[in-house]
């Protein structure tokens, strides 16, 4: 086994055989060590959230990864390869440059009252920016951002959830965990943070659960959010997917009569695998 141990001989056979063995062992141990070390660096550099999003994104069904421009009908069906980081996407840049897609509009202050901006019966005002994980962002006059769960998302979670907002002063990053929602008897759902920033204030249940954030950069970090005319086709696609989930066999007549969606979907559809619906809706695991 080792020189000096009884029966070790400096013969060619021993050298080749044991050399190969120790090489293999060396490779295994060093590679394992390197990945442990890299993991430590990643943990210290708080890359866990980034990695989590990368993996969650890869695990999403292909139709949940559709490019925003494909949803908006500006291009052929196209699966996003960059985890919705439109700011880094050359395709997105090309569309912006050619004017095919409008730039992220500057938007005014003040939140819309509930019920306004009716979209298929959901309150999704066009003045807000939307993250694909069903959160919205508004910019305030002082440069801070306000983020919250959109109407469709709230109704899918249903009534009386337990919400765990991050503490004030926490730094959250876009696509990282924004906050956690837990409905009794179910696994908690991580809601993706729509933008990066430091939490400076939070709102409780009476104000509809929101985060007030000091953005990392005042001018950027919003390119990946949906806005304007993109919102409608996105919500439409989401509803289609939802409809398939809720009644996969498409049985029964439609109630396309302009009624309002119920406030608590899980209560109305107890037989559905809500765990999965939530993971698809909030793009999380």
């Amino acid at each position: 086994m080792l020189p000096g141990i009884y029966e070790f001989q400096w013969t060619l056979g021993h050298l080749i055989f044991l050399g190969a063995f120790f090489t293999v062992l060396g490779i295994l141990v060093s590679v394992l060590f390197v990945s442990l070390r890299k993991s430590r660096i990643d943990l210290q550099g708080r890359r866990a959230e980034v990695i989590r999003w990368q993996q969650s994104f890869q695990q999403l069904p292909a139709d949940q990864r559709q490019c925003r421009h494909a949803l908006a009908g500006r291009t052929q069906p196209r699966v996003c390869q960059r985890g919705f980081a439109c700011g880094e996407c050359p395709f997105h840049a090309r569309l912006l440059a050619s004017g095919t897609a409008p730039r992220t509009a500057l938007f005014g202050e003040g939140s819309c009252p509930a019920g306004s901006g009716d979209l298929f019966g959901f309150a999704m005002p066009a003045s807000r920016l939307y993250h694909r994980g069903h959160t919205w962002v508004e910019q305030r006059a002082d440069g801070t951002l306000v983020a919250g769960l959109d109407d469709l998302g709230s109704r899918l979670i249903g009534a009386a959830p337990q919400v765990e907002l991050p503490a004030i002063g926490t730094e959250i990053s876009a696509q990282g965990t924004g906050w956690q929602i837990c409905r009794a008897g179910a696994d908690p759902v991580h809601v993706l943070a729509p933008v990066s920033g430091t939490v400076i204030a939070t709102g409780g249940p009476e104000k509809g659960w929101y985060l007030r954030l000091q953005p990392v950069r005042i001018d950027a970090g919003l390119e990946h959010l949906l806005h304007g005319e993109e919102i409608r086709p996105w919500v439409q696609a989401e509803l289609q997917r939802l409809q398939r989930r809720l009644s996969p066999e498409c049985l029964g007549p439609s109630l396309a009569d302009g009624g309002l969606p119920v406030a608590d979907f899980p209560a109305a559809y107890p037989g559905v695998d809500w765990d999965t619906v939530w993971s698809e809706t909030f793009l999380t695991d």
Binding site: Q240, Q243, L255, D257, G259, P261
Partner: peptide, 17 residues
């Protein structure tokens, strides 16, 4: 999906009057 989503309605989604 036999019931297309469009207009003001939300397909087979449950609604309240």
């Amino acid at each position: 999906t036999t019931l297309a989503v469009g207009g003001a309605g939300a397909g087979t989604l449950p609604t309240s009057r």
